[in-house]
Design a protein around this nucleic acid. Sequence first.
RNA 1: GCCGGCAUGAUGGAAUUGGCAGACGUGCCGGACUCAAAAUCCGGUGGUAGCGAUACCGUGUGGGUUCAAGUCCCACUGCCGGCACCA
Length: 809
Amino acid sequence: MEKKYDFTAIEKKWQKYWEENNTFHAENNSDKPKYYALVEFPYPSGQGLHIGHPRPYTAMDIVARKRRLQGYNVLFPMGWDAFGLPTENYAIKNKIHPALVTENNIKRFKSQLKSLGLSFDWDREVNTTDPEYFKWTQWIFLQLFKKGLAYKSKMAVNWCTSCKVVLANEEVVSGCCERCGGEVIRKEKSQWMLKITEYAQRLLDDLELVDYPERVKSSQINWIGRSTGAEVNFETSAGDTLTVYTTRPDTLFGATYMVISPEHPYIEKWSDKLSNLEEIKDYQQKAAKKSDFDRTELNKEKTGVKLSGVTAVNPVNGKEIPIFISDYVLMGYGTGAIMAVPAHDERDYEFAKVFGLPIIEVVKGGDITKAAFTDCATGIMTNSGFLDGLSVEEAKVKIKEWLAANGKGHEKVNFKLRDWVFSRQRYWGEPIPLVYCEKCGWVPVAEEELPLTLPDVDSYMPTDSGESPLSTLESFINTTCPHCGGKARRETDTMPQWAGSSWYFLRYCDPDFKAGVASKEALDYWMPVDWYNGGMEHTTLHLLYSRFWHKFLYDIGIVSTKEPYMKRTSHGMILGKDLDNPGQFTKMSKSKGNVVNPDDVVKEFGADTVRLYEMFIGDFEKAAPWQEEGIKGCKRFLDRVWGLREMIAEGEEHGKELESEIHRTIKKVGEDIEGLKFNTAIAALMSLLNKFYSLGSITKGEFKTFLILLYPFAPHISEELYSEVSGGAVIDDQSWCPYDEALCVDDTVEIAVQINGKVKAKLNVSAGLDKDTLVKTALENEEVMKLIQGKQVVKSIGVPDKLVNIVAK
RNA sequence: GCCGGCAUGAUGGAAUUGGCAGACGUGCCGGACUCAAAAUCCGGUGGUAGCGAUACCGUGUGGGUUCAAGUCCCACUGCCGGCACCA
């Protein structure tokens, strides 16, 4: 009987079956071992799902489906990271409440995800904009506040002139706003900050507890930016001690001048002693106007002003040295002041050349008339008194001892990591639940009053002054102090989008819990996440922020694991056609007009084909181009799988050769899934299918095994065929196929015989021959003997089951 | 500038510890089926020379180590990503 592969009907049928049977529902209690597989929840944008979204989702769906068959109780949840600027901008433009926009976008996203047959447990869906969710985002913030880890600070911030919003450093790309591309300038603002820097060392150390790819680990390490050096005290003629931070205290004898940041407080303090104050103030103003981008961009050439009237003394040799201000020294790092050693620091060298300052070599090994010598590994100390003759590393130790003994300084560790700017002057975010009282200062909203919800406003536009739209709403602002009952005003800033995504994986454990982020039992059962896959774009910020919050929650006893994620992997982007450069591929974007909508592809080829192609397209960890021609191959493969039902012939024995090929395929598919090598797993399935076709028949048992292997990748067609061939059974109730290592090897193997490194013959030998026997067998082979006739065998190398190489002259 | 990654047929991409380069797919060529086309099935497909068995060349470039190099080492080129005065 001919039956068509009607993927649309089949996919609908099984999606309905799974939904009705709650197949993917995870229970918080189970005798089975638990497995928590996590993908990054999407931002439900107005454009709907993008063809890149299903790549990581399908990958983890494959893992989740395989784990269920392996007998695990699997948690594979999904939700919505729904606060954010695009929704707010859309709301402003179309005068629709952002909550309504969000609701519609989520509906669309959800139906798109469901059409792909992803095995999410939809009973655990979370939404960061749901007051029942952000109640606990606010609660966590209050705990941070109560522990002194949230503070308000006036600081220069990155200000997007187009979005009219404060951006985090990480949201500024080459001087422009990451989202809109608008110009970013510096502006003084009072901001809520989170003290992530207090966790810097632990965020670094605990990377040893987790299984992250090297590229992810190293970017976290670089972002944290730990360095070991020393703080050194310089006495000044003004009477104040000027402390600097340096990683090269060994070069102290070579410090010929000092530089302080234009924002350094001593400038104000010393104003009556400085004879060129006007020149200095002028330079300060210019520096203040520049954005960070301009500051780095314009400073190819070093600039600065010498402080006339105040000098410093090098503590190690008593020499008087000048002090400069220059914007190459940043107030936000170290002490905002440096000792300059032009002979051994490139920036100091450039500056010294511009200002004609002395360059004294204190480490031998380079040519300081040409460039600064910065190599720590080979240099030997010179012109450095008691350090002379030592290596750089030895000198570092000795000078630190000297500094400590003489009260001139001490060892110091510094981090590049800055505290997290946590305020946004926007409407569509979690309100920060604090009130300001003249008498009591900043006071938290009572926890019973959470969630503090967003009031309805007429306009979601940020104000020109830079304040949040909430700041114009008197009914929201005016309140009473929870502490003294007097008049108080609410904070009108909202939280950044990173807030809700910093703990969402905890909420999945117990999404309806009313008395906390999740019940202790649920958290202890499910956490940590066993495998978390996400994009490289989130390896520094989201990963670091969520690890920080998790460590804080660990400290206050909410969670029991130090790290949230045991294993992290990263997928590559799906690229679209570059319409400007035919034959090239580039990032898909609306503006480039090269976005592929998964709905169209699902409609034309079916969800199973889309899933398969997303996984077959290439190395999962690398970017891959979406090619319409390529997807056909996956559709053909499934058509051929469908065709197997016509080939079922019971009782036909295919022998050991096929049996071992099946076992090898089981092994390979299983191992490849664990190693993110989905493309080669599929290739192995294709090879096995080709084998079935060449044999012309398949037994029911072989067919069932094949379908179980295919099921994680293409679940709908696998379920349909399995239920047909087994009289109604479903794969969800089956077990992952075991394999027999002994059966994976054939009785005989083909080995290559090389003569002088070139393959000259092939030989069939029994498997597992040791190398001596193998060489002997090869040398006794007639064909081989002919080939080496008249030559002298110098050397023979045998590699069991692989090859023999005969070196003959 | 610094750090990281990558470079393989026409094309997307495969290749455990160094061990038969090009698995699997696309495209192309040929055959079967068809009035014909599509679809499907079967076969072929790195380059050069040769009727041919075969020979030589071949993993960005140039060197090296090795019985053996896509894989290891040195130098260079190109592309992609991240950071960007962090003392």
